[in-house]
Computed example of a mutant assay.
Amino acid sequence: MKFSVFTASTPEWTPQEAVTELSAQGWHGIEWRVTDQADAPEPGFWAGNKATWPLTGLEESLPDIARITADAGLEYSGLGGYARCDNHDDVDRVLAATAELGARQVCVNVLPLGNSTMGGQEPTGLSYPELFAATREHYEWVSSRAAHHGVKALVELHHGTVTASASSARRLLDGLDPQHVGVIHDLGNLLIEGWESPLPALQLLGPYLAHVHVKNARWVLTDQRDPAGGAVWASEWAPLEAGIGNVVTYFKALADAGYDDWVTVEDFSTEVPLAERTAGNLDFLRRAASLAGLAVAGNADSVSKG
């Protein structure tokens, strides 16, 4: 098993600072965030993120991405792209960039739910069957282009989209070539929507289980009430060791499902300063992997998978 960091979660660092810090801490790789983003007065996860490569002009940035990643001795766990499956031009660009960098795989977003306001968008009002059918049609095209470029396009399990669960993602991709399309199983997102017991969900994905993201979340009781006077709960991101998800149990499920590849951390909690947070997360992941019987590359304290 290898560990990397998705740079959506390192907004205060420039790309050079990110590779320098993560390499020094002992991470195996990095997953670069690639998207055009809004400016912000202070660096944030989704706007003003210094460790994000703009999609505009991406082709000109590829030599710099390759150089600083290689010079730091880091590998790519993939690319964190945000191109949506219905934007064929942008999808083809990120697939081509993934191939040129040798990053192997890249996230290609599915369509949001018809009532979703994710990213500040207006709800489309379209039904789930309509959106699912459209996403499948687009992903058939995505699969063909991924094959053309010799890479893999990844569907992320994400709340507010047509693939919040492993079951929905398997249904979406079923029949497409798992050499060129796959699924990112995401512990934290599933705590918000789409939860299924990890081991059977991972087994259900079968050959489409391509990548794993780890973050954690918790539900908190707000001081609000619904119109009937009922309690209102809200989700928030939590440190890896402080959320609802048990990482050791999750890693045991990964081991039992035969997954022993990249695990990428995207910790959106802010309770601990960034450098301390990333270093602490790596230590925590190594302990969790050892307890789950997973061998960690380059880690003298790892144990063989049993």
Rank of each mutant, 00 (worst) to 15 (best):
G102T: 09
R277Y: 01
E193F: 02
A96R: 13
E21I: 11
E122V: 15
E137A: 14
A234E: 13
G81S: 06
S168V: 00
N109W: 14
S167R: 15
A231I: 08
F132H: 04
N246T: 06
A253N: 09
V303W: 07
Y259V: 05
V220T: 12
Q121G: 14
M1Y: 02
V91N: 05
V91G: 08
G150C: 04
C85K: 01
A166G: 15
T270E: 12
R33G: 09
T161A: 05
I184L: 11
H148W: 08
I68A: 00
N299K: 00
N189Q: 10
A51W: 01
G150A: 07
G230C: 08
S77R: 04
V110P: 07
E156A: 04
G44Q: 10
F132L: 10
A275R: 15
T124Q: 06
E156G: 00
R33Q: 14
W219R: 14
L191F: 11
Y208I: 06
S9E: 03
G160C: 03
A257R: 14
D186P: 01
R93A: 12
L113G: 06
I30G: 09
V94D: 02
A103M: 05
D283N: 10
L221A: 08
L157M: 13
A40C: 07
L173D: 05
E236Q: 15
G119T: 09
E271V: 14
F284V: 12
Q37R: 14
P54M: 02
C107E: 03
E236G: 00
R170T: 05
S143T: 06
G150K: 04
A257I: 07
A292H: 10
Y250Q: 10
Y76F: 15
A83K: 02
L190N: 11
S144V: 00
H159Y: 08
E241N: 13
A238G: 06
R84C: 02
N49W: 02
N299R: 02
F3A: 04
G194R: 01
F284D: 03
T20P: 00
L209K: 07
G160Q: 05
R171M: 09
D64E: 15
N299Y: 15
R84W: 09
V91W: 03
G293H: 04
Q203H: 11
A210S: 15
L157C: 12
K2G: 03
G229L: 03
N216W: 13
L291W: 14
A133N: 11
I30S: 07
A147N: 06
K215F: 11
A255P: 00
A288Y: 08
K50G: 02
P54R: 05
A238N: 00
G150W: 10
D89T: 13
L176G: 03
F6E: 01
E17Y: 03
T10P: 14
L205F: 04
S304Y: 03
G160L: 00
N87E: 15
A66M: 02
A288K: 13
P63E: 00
F251S: 10
G206C: 06
G194A: 05
V296G: 02
P198A: 09
E60L: 08
K305M: 08
Q25R: 07
T14E: 07
D71T: 11
W237G: 02
E236R: 14
H158D: 10
A164Q: 12
G48E: 01
G188I: 10
G175H: 03
L74F: 10
D36A: 02
A275L: 09
R277Q: 12
A147I: 00
E193P: 12
D261N: 13
A83E: 12
E276K: 05
G206S: 13
F132S: 03
E59A: 08
